[in-house]
Simulated assay, not measured.
Amino acid sequence: MRLFSYKGLSMMIMLRDEHCPPHAHVDAGVWSARFKFSFCHNSVELWDVVAHSRRAPSAVLEGLRQGLSQPAHLRRARGIWWDKLQTACLDNQLWDTQHDEVVMMKSVASTTYMIGSSYYEPEKNKTLLALMGAPEGVEIEL
């Protein structure tokens, strides 16, 4: 499903055979790229680029990344992803309540909990986390 266009290129959320992490695709014919987005923060990053016959211009890739970072486009991407896959791709990851972020392998501290489940509310642009063993969950306003 198309999110937006930038310099004649369409940023898309594919609706078949998708997988975590949440991401959007751009196919320029001579190259293709994927951009990761999240349900727990508003950053967007270039995930990878494949040059089929030509390299992707850095300025175009950055323009596409900034385009997806726009609140309306990011919210639409999350909504499409959630509607299709029903996952925020956060389950079974570690959440640090002190720093309010997903953390990779780190020594378990009293502020680190396993995310048991996550739920995205598209109409409120909010992610809810149920943390295993924590006294309460986390609500992330995006």
Rank of each mutant, 00 (worst) to 15 (best):
V103Y: 05
D17L: 02
C89F: 08
A88F: 02
S5R: 12
A88S: 12
L142E: 03
G8Q: 04
A33Q: 05
E62Y: 09
D91S: 10
E123L: 08
A59T: 15
E101D: 08
K124E: 02
Q86W: 03
M114C: 14
L142G: 00
A33S: 09
S58G: 08
M132L: 14
L61T: 14
E45L: 10
A109T: 11
S117C: 12
R76L: 09
E101N: 05
A130Q: 10
L128V: 14
F35R: 04
L3H: 09
M12E: 15
A77T: 02
E18I: 10
I80R: 02
C89S: 09
T87H: 12
V50P: 03
F37D: 01
H99G: 01
R2I: 13
Y6R: 14
M105A: 15
R54A: 15
V50T: 11
E45V: 11
H73R: 08
V108P: 00
I115C: 02
S69F: 04
C40E: 01
R78G: 00
Q98D: 11
E141Q: 09
Y113D: 07
D27L: 05
S53Y: 05
V30D: 15
H99F: 14
E62I: 15
A109F: 03
M12A: 04
T127M: 06
M14L: 11
G133S: 15
R34H: 13
T97Q: 10
C20M: 11
A59C: 12
D27W: 09
C40N: 03
A28L: 14
G67S: 14
Q93I: 00
H41F: 09
P71A: 10
F39H: 00
R76H: 09
H73Y: 04
F4W: 05
E45I: 13
H23G: 03
E62W: 04
L94A: 08
A77I: 01
N42V: 06
E141S: 06
I80L: 14
D83A: 05
R55Y: 13
S10N: 13
N42E: 02
A33D: 03
H99D: 14
E121S: 07
G116D: 11
H23P: 03
E121W: 02
V44W: 04
